[in-house]
Design a protein around this nucleic acid. Sequence first.
DNA 1: TGAAAGTGGACTTGAACGGTCGTATATTAA
DNA 2: TTAATATACGACCGTTCAAGTCCACTTTCA
Lengths: 134, 134
Amino acid sequence: MIRLSKRVEYGLIAIRHIATKPAGEIVTAKEIADTYGIPYELLSKVLQKLTKSGLISSHQGMRGGYALARAPAEIPVSLIISAIEGTRQAIVQCLSEGPQTCTVFTVCTIKSPLTKVQANIERAFSTMNLSEIV
Amino acid sequence: MIRLSKRVEYGLIAIRHIATKPAGEIVTAKEIADTYGIPYELLSKVLQKLTKSGLISSHQGMRGGYALARAPAEIPVSLIISAIEGTRQAIVQCLSEGPQTCTVFTVCTIKSPLTKVQANIERAFSTMNLSEIV
DNA sequence: TGAAAGTGGACTTGAACGGTCGTATATTAA
DNA sequence: TTAATATACGACCGTTCAAGTCCACTTTCA
């Protein structure tokens, strides 16, 4: 009924993998890709997104790799998802776009009831953090 | 971050529209399509799905149309969604497919934590019914 | 009988996603 | 200083899927 993208799936697996290591230990993208059979190039991009969002830190060059940038308890699942998917999207267009761009805004009737559902979903993702996944 | 399909969106708008009418009154697909600016042909198929699932009843021929088949309080939003989307899908492949088809099953580590998130989402949709949307 | 309504299959199109390739850049060890 | 190893990043491709369209058929009532 509702599905996370492969990117997010890979991102969750990867960041969890990093979190299982002793704090500060550096993990390469290749190690993660090999361990879980994830396409290396795709995983790289996901990790780069997580880096840009400040959830993990990257270290270039030889002996480089990735490490957590925060404590696992400080990383809610919702942040991981929005970091990877970029534009945060709502369950219906009306909720994520401005009212002026919604074609059926004046007659749209399901908007307000769905905000409640939306809030529930958001909470489902934001109340769970990385420390609970490890 | 997570989005309902247009079909579901149209379905919710439509069934809500039907629910606002006096019980037993018949509403045509054309009326709904015109009112909300929804493509008629697409809406028809959505309504057909809702009909096949027994949420609404259809009346063919002239002066035909659709009416609710149950009381609004007996129609949870989750049923509307699954009626339209057909196969109920999980947020990650692992949860909806059998374990044997999941390529990373043996090493997949995020499956069990995500079942909790999944359950929360399901509950968000199943606890709300049509009578609360009208 | 004809107009109005639902039924249903086939098709097109566009965007998004998963995945790949190639290259540039940074860092470290020898 | 150089070679190896790692991330960074943009361009590209193929497939899939959702949205939308078209059209032929059936049913019903006036």
